[in-house]
Amino acid sequence: MSFETTKSTRKFVVMKDEVLISDHTKQKKKVVIVAMTGRMLMDFVGPSDVFTTTNIFLKDSGSNDEYEVQIAAPTADKKVTTGAGIKILCDTSAMDIKSSIDTLIICNYEFHESPVNLFQPFYTWLAKRTEKNTRRIGSVCAGTFALAKAGLINQHKVTTHWNLNEKLQRNYPQLHVDTNLFYAKDGHIYTSGGVSSGVDMALAMVEEDFGKELAIRVARELVVYRYRPGYQSQFGSLLSSYDSSGLSLKLRNWVKEHLHENMDVRRIADHLNMSTRNFTRVFHKQTGIPPAKFVEKVRVEEARKLLEDTDNSLENIAELCGLGGLSSMRRTFLRLLMTTPSDYRRAFRTSLSDTGIDDPYILESSNYSDAD
């Protein structure tokens, strides 16, 4: 079986689980990963692990290709303080890099900048990174905000963490934001969603450079999906943007108590002692969606909890949550979460119950009561 790189004609042959490469010209791809904030180590460590693991396979196969990976700080002091209590001293700051870069990835974003605008030199440097000096420019999680601030992604299709999509679209209306995706590619711009999505994006880059077979081997080594099933929408709450709205906040618990019942607009309006017309107008103004759509999202959120935490049958969950039959619930899940109820349960059900062990932590002492 043979395959080719995307950007060259270098041939690869896979034989007995080995990658044999016929071109012995040394090819280093410079990868610069900028750790904007260390709140999540995985933001920048995840992609780095993908590229460095790829190097191991390339070396073992006799290839002269490799990634030259650098973790760079966005500040002149070269320091990154992480939320894990670890302080990192990088070998370089981004502003010290004057040469061309193969792949530049900005990880996360500093929303609370210091009064002296500590990161302005970095944004000035970043704004000068174009297709002429950087083959690929990517971001992880909130790093999309950094690319937007530097003016690099105007009119591009991008993604970010599912919980930041509205903020990104509001702050940068010229962008085309789709946070259903784990990662997106638009020209030479690559953006990824929350935290672990940076691994998905890095694996896609490896596949572009060295082909599908090698990307699969790296994914297996890291025990991750090469193509992760589903979309980011599975992870986010459908109601997060409505929690602070007046009428939706008042209605949410009441709707949850009557999920299995008919919940038309007239009944909801009567519960609030409002006319149907006035309720519909005020609710839509506050939330941006019709009442029926809100009720549907409450139903799906409750169905998600039952799928995660119980062994109730899918038919029973559909009935309890007022989602009609199983076919109707499946269509609703596909439309709102881009996954089926059964696939959602497999991905998110209570972790310990998935092991098949009823009591994985057996106490050696009987001094603990149920109340403990």
Rank of each mutant, 00 (worst) to 15 (best):
Y183D: 06
V158Q: 00
C141F: 00
A150H: 13
I189S: 03
P74Q: 04
D186H: 14
I88G: 02
E113P: 01
D65R: 03
K78G: 01
C141L: 00
T92L: 01
S61N: 14
L89I: 12
C107Y: 07
I137E: 01
K87C: 12
P173F: 10
K79C: 07
F122G: 02
F122D: 04
T130I: 11
N108A: 15
D60Q: 15
I106S: 03
V116L: 14
V69Y: 00
R170H: 13
A76H: 10
D77I: 11
A73R: 04
L104V: 02
F122S: 07
F111D: 09
F119Y: 15
I86W: 11
K87W: 08
N180S: 15
Q169T: 10
N165S: 15
N165K: 14
K157I: 15
S99N: 13
Q120T: 10
H176Y: 11
W162H: 13
A184F: 13
H156V: 03
Y123P: 08
A84M: 13
T81P: 00
I71W: 02
V80N: 05
I86Y: 15
L58M: 09
H156L: 00
D60E: 15
Y190N: 10
S139L: 10
T103E: 04
F119W: 12
Y123H: 11
S99F: 00
T124M: 00
N117Y: 11
A84T: 12
L181G: 00
P121E: 04
A142Q: 06
H161V: 06
L152S: 07
S114P: 00
T179P: 03
R135N: 07
K185L: 01
Q70T: 14
A184N: 13
I56L: 14
N64R: 14
I189Y: 08
D186F: 12
L89C: 05
N133K: 10
T103D: 07
I71T: 01
I86H: 13
S139M: 09
G151R: 08
N163G: 09
G143M: 08
S61H: 11
L175K: 05
N55L: 07
Y109T: 07
A73L: 09
T144E: 08
W125T: 07
F111Q: 08
Q70L: 12
F122T: 08
C141E: 00
K59V: 03
I106Y: 06
G138C: 03
D77M: 12
T124Q: 08
V116N: 15
Y183G: 05
F111W: 09
G62C: 11
K78M: 05
N108T: 14
I105Y: 04
D178Q: 12
G83P: 10
L58N: 06
I105E: 02
T92Y: 02
K87H: 15
K128A: 15
Q155E: 15
E68I: 03
A72P: 03
H112E: 11
F145A: 04
D102L: 00
G138Q: 02
P74N: 05
Y67L: 00
F145Y: 12
S100G: 13
Y109S: 06
Y123W: 05
T144W: 05
G187Q: 09
T144H: 06
F182G: 00
N163K: 11
S114W: 02
